[in-house]
Amino acid sequence: MVRSSPPRVLFGPQRPVDAGAAAPPRFALLLLLAAIAVLLQVTLAHAWTLRGAQPSLLTVLIVWTGLRCGPTTGGWLGLIGGVLEDALGGGGANVLGGALVGFLSGLLSSRYFAESLTVVIAAVAGGTIVRNAVSYIVLEIAYGDRGTYHRFAHATAWEVLLNCALAAIVVLALRWWSNRRPAI
């Protein structure tokens, strides 16, 4: 008996997929999106600064990928995105946080719908805090940047706000896009 298998994400156990749910995006596409997000961040994000904080397209993408595709895909995408950020000036502070946030977001995927606006926004807020906290700890340990907690916390609070707004826009845009496509 031939049985249609659910779409393969990267590796690891496959989740049972609802018949109506859209297939998760390919990992190559996610990598391309991550590369573009990092490129936009290092090139244009300085124009979007709000009280010292910039929105992180990569964080939103990592969290959304984790929710949509699971911890494995989310974790590896977060790791690769963090490597790209560090290679372009992060100094090694982003890769751990990226991988951790991707993986943790993926853990939520078995319990929550990735299409839920509330879930995505809450996950993005938590992911931003975790990423920045990990980065702060790495910076503290590796470089001894003492006394920057207040500045870091202030920027993180504003970044949470910006990232949540960005995530809301992305989710709403994806909903509009999926509703626009004709049903098969």
Binding site: G75, G91, G92, V95, A99
Partner: peptide, 13 residues
């Protein structure tokens, strides 16, 4: 993930 990320992070640092 943690091993790879930590290795990359240490390399970068």
């Amino acid at each position: 993930l943690i091993i790879v990320a930590a290795s990359v992070s240490l390399l970068e640092i």
